[in-house]
């Protein structure tokens, strides 16, 4: 579909609410953040909802799941007792707003820096790493045979996928080459594949001042693969948001997350989690320095936000150098 004007988009949302809820749409507001996804909050018939939509309604990342699959996985996660927002419906052609779904709005904070710095989270921050460990153990325990078809990608698959993006991009990054060489030489042992969230980190979790971790969001990169991926990704230095001495999301210690994961029946391979921390840092670097740059320069997303993220590749180069020299 072509890009909708702001007015067209709002008119179609209003029509969608009238048809599906028989109520007018109120308080429509774009939620901040999310270069790869749009989130809109609105109220309809006294209930608050969130619309999740691919930017301009089109598929921009070749790795992102179709919105209908994403919604089906979230529903399966809810059935397994994982805290997620309830999916209300998946948007269809009649709604005319492109790939999107609507879920219940949950009260809580997702902005990583607020979770790390605002006083109201002081009481729950210390427990977050353990809550993450328990949630991941439950997620990795889901029987994958009950799920809709998902892409498969393990350590070697993820590494070679991103090495391929780097090569196709053509811009030389000597530090990324160094990381790829190290990762190829240090592939983790294969383990039974499980459901992998694929984007489990501070920024994609919802935290409340009373209960800590209250929802896991952003399921568009979910796949089948090595569960250790989800324990490495939240420790990538870029996701510590300035709190470098707190490896898990800037709020906790690895030991707390690992202990809770083990207590809930999960098995940890610490060599593999380290591999995934380094691969995660490389992946974020290639997303910034190659994929975002390509989306920006091709005109697919010419926004200043998209363009400027390209210049965050260098932060991952310094982190990779430090990690490859054995630092935390």
């Amino acid at each position: 579909m072509g890009e909708l004007s702001k007015q067209q988009f709002e008119e179609r949302l209003a029509a969608m609410c009238a048809r599906r809820f028989d109520a007018p749409i109120e308080h429509l507001k774009r939620l901040s953040g999310g270069a790869s996804q749009e989130s809109w909050r609105f109220v309809c018939g006294g209930q608050a909802y969130v619309l999740r939509r691919n930017p301009r309604g089109v598929q921009t990342s070749q790795n992102a799941l179709p919105k209908a699959s994403e919604a089906a996985i979230i529903t399966a996660a809810a059935e397994a007792g994982i805290a997620v927002p309830r999916i209300s419906f998946i948007c269809d052609d009649d709604d005319g707003i492109g790939e999107a779904y609507v879920m219940d709005f949950i009260e809580g904070e997702t902005i990583a820096r607020k979770i790390l710095r605002d006083e109201e989270f002081d009481n729950v921050r210390g427990g977050l790493a353990a809550q993450c460990g328990s949630m991941l153990a439950a997620l990795h325990n889901i029987d994958v045979s009950t799920l809709p078809d998902l892409p498969f990608s393990d350590a070697e698959g993820e590494l070679e996928k991103y090495a391929g993006y780097l090569q196709a991009g053509g811009h030389p990054f000597p530090v990324f080459e160094l990381a790829i060489k190290w990762l190829r030489d240090n592939l983790p042992e294969k383990r039974a594949p499980s459901l992998v969230h694929g984007d489990f980190r501070n920024g994609n979790i919802m935290v409340s001042p009373q209960d800590g971790l209250v929802a896991l969001l952003d399921w568009e990169l979910t796949h089948i693969g090595d569960p250790m991926e989800d324990l490495g990704w939240p420790c990538v230095p870029s996701w510590r948001f300035g709190q470098h001495d707190m490896p898990v999301g800037g709020f906790g210690a690895r030991a707390d997350m690992y202990a809770a994961y083990r207590a809930a029946g999960g098995e940890i391979d610490e060599k593999a989690t380290r591999f995934w921390e380094i691969l995660g840092t490389l992946k974020w670097g290639i997303m910034c320095g190659v994929l975002m740059v390509s989306a920006f320069e091709s005109g697919a997303d010419p926004s200043i936000e998209r363009g400027s993220i390209g210049r965050r590749a260098s932060e991952t180069e310094i982190d990779l150098l430090r990690m490859l020299m054995g630092e935390d």
Binding site: R312, E315, D319, R322
Partner: peptide, 13 residues
């Protein structure tokens, strides 16, 4: 050098 230009306030730098 890249960080000094792109992100001099980055924690890792």
């Amino acid at each position: 050098g890249k960080l000094a230009i792109d992100q001099p306030r980055y924690q890792g730098y």
